[in-house]
C-alpha cells in the first residue's frame, strides 16, 4: 500500500463514518390506536419492595413487559441532591425492586440513569439509589452517570412544537423502557410526573423546554414512549417543588401507580394532589396527540 492509497483509505473510512450518523427510527405505536380502557393499578403498602411486586400482579407480573434477553432501562428521577425523605427523587426501594424484577425476568441488561439537575455524584448518592442498587449484586445491572457522548440528535417526526432534540442513546436502544418518576409539585408544570421525567434522558439546553412546556414534553415523549410507567407516590411533595427540601411539604401516601399508558398514569396521579387531570398541560397535550387516556372514568382502575 503506498501513501496515496493509504490516505484514500483513511479518507473514505472516516467519511463513511461521519456521513452516516446512527439512525434511530423509533416509530411509536401510538397511532396504531389507543387502548380503549387502559388498565391502571393503584397499590398501597408500607413495604415498598413488595408493593411494586403486588402492583404488577394484575398485569401478570413484570414478565408482561420484560422479555427474556431484553435490554431494560429503568428511569427514575434522581434529579436532586436530596435524601429519600425529602421526596424530590424516586424512592430507592421502588427503583431497586423494579430492577430486581427485571433481572429475574431475564433481562440481558438493566440500566439506571438520569441527567441530574444538581451534581450527579451527590444526587446519585444522596438519593439513596446508588447504594440501593449496589446491594443487588448482578453484573447485568448498571447504575451509571450520564455519558455526554451518548446524546444523539433525533428528528421528532410527530412533534408539534419541537422538531429535533438530543436523546440519550441507551434510552433509545431499550427494548423495555420503564419510567419511574416521583409525583411532586412543580411550580411551572404544576406537577412533575411521568411525562416530565423524560427530561432526564435528553441532552441540550433543557431550560428552553420550559418555554412551552406542556407541548414540548408531549413531543419528547413521542420519541421514547415508556412501556411501563410506575409513579412513585410513596411520599409526594405538595409544595416548593421540584427540589423541595422541607419535610413539612411532604405527604406520605405509601402508594404506587402502575400502568402501560403514560398519559393515564399522569392523569390519575394528578388526582392525588386534589387536582383535575387537565390542570397539567403536558397531560392535556399528550392526550390530544392520542398518546393515552386522561379521563379516570375511562380507565380500568384496580385498587390493591
Amino acid at each position: 500500500m503506498d501513501r496515496r492509497k493509504f490516505l484514500q483509505q483513511v479518507a473514505l473510512w472516516s467519511a463513511g463514518i461521519i456521513v452516516m450518523p446512527p439512525v434511530f427510527r423509533i416509530t411509536p405505536d401510538l397511532f396504531a390506536g389507543i387502548i380503549s380502557s387502559p388498565k391502571l393499578v393503584v397499590a398501597e403498602g408500607k413495604n415498598y419492595t413488595t408493593l411494586v411486586v403486588k402492583a404488577l400482579e394484575p398485569f401478570g407480573g413484570i414478565a408482561a413487559f420484560v422479555k427474556q434477553g431484553d435490554k431494560v432501562v429503568v428511569k427514575p428521577n434522581i434529579g436532586w441532591d436530596r435524601n429519600p425523605a425529602q421526596a424530590a427523587n424516586t424512592h430507592p426501594l421502588i427503583v431497586s425492586s423494579l430492577c430486581s424484577l427485571a433481572l429475574d425476568a431475564g433481562a440481558s441488561e438493566v440500566k439506571v440513569f438520569d441527567r441530574t439537575c444538581n451534581e450527579e455524584r451527590r444526587s446519585y448518592n444522596n438519593s439513596g439509589i446508588l447504594s440501593a442498587l449496589e446491594k443487588i449484586k448482578d453484573k447485568r445491572l448498571n447504575c451509571t452517570y450520564i455519558d455526554r457522548r451518548k446524546f444523539v440528535p433525533i428528528q421528532i417526526d410527530n412533534g408539534r412544537s419541537l422538531k429535533e432534540w438530543e436523546f440519550y442513546k441507551d434510552a433509545l436502544e431499550a427494548d423495555c423502557y420503564i419510567n419511574v418518576p416521583i409525583a411532586k409539585h412543580h411550580s411551572l408544570a404544576g406537577l412533575t410526573l411521568g411525562l416530565k421525567n423524560i427530561m432526564g434522558v435528553i441532552g441540550g439546553m433543557r431550560g428552553i423546554i420550559h418555554q412551552d412546556m406542556g407541548q414540548n414534553l408531549a413531543d419528547l415523549n413521542t420519541v421514547i414512549t415508556p412501556n411501563l410507567t410506575v409513579i412513585d407516590a410513596t411520599r409526594i411533595l405538595l409544595r416548593n417543588g421540584p427540589s423541595g427540601g422541607r419535610l413539612k411539604d411532604v405527604k406520605v401516601m405509601d402508594t404506587v401507580i402502575v400502568t402501560a399508558d403514560p398519559v393515564a398514569a399522569d392523569a390519575y396521579a394528578t388526582t392525588l394532589f386534589d387536582m383535575k387531570p387537565d390542570a397539567i398541560d403536558s397531560t392535556k397535550a399528550a392526550y390530544k396527540m392520542g398518546m393515552g387516556e386522561m379521563d379516570p372514568a375511562k380507565m380500568d382502575i384496580i385498587r390493591l
Binding site: 441532591d81 439537575c117 411550580s187 411551572l188 420550559h210 418555554q211 427540601g245 422541607r246
Partner: peptide, 26 residues
C-alpha cells in the same frame, strides 16, 4: 428575564433554588 422581557414562560431559576423556603418566589 424571559417572563418580564419577552412574555415567555420560564422560571428555571425558581425551580432550582435550593433553600427550603425558596428565595425565588413567583
Amino acid at each position: 428575564c424571559l417572563p418580564y422581557a419577552q412574555n415567555t414562560p420560564c422560571i428555571v431559576c425558581e425551580e432550582h433554588c435550593p433553600t427550603y423556603d425558596k428565595a425565588i418566589k413567583i
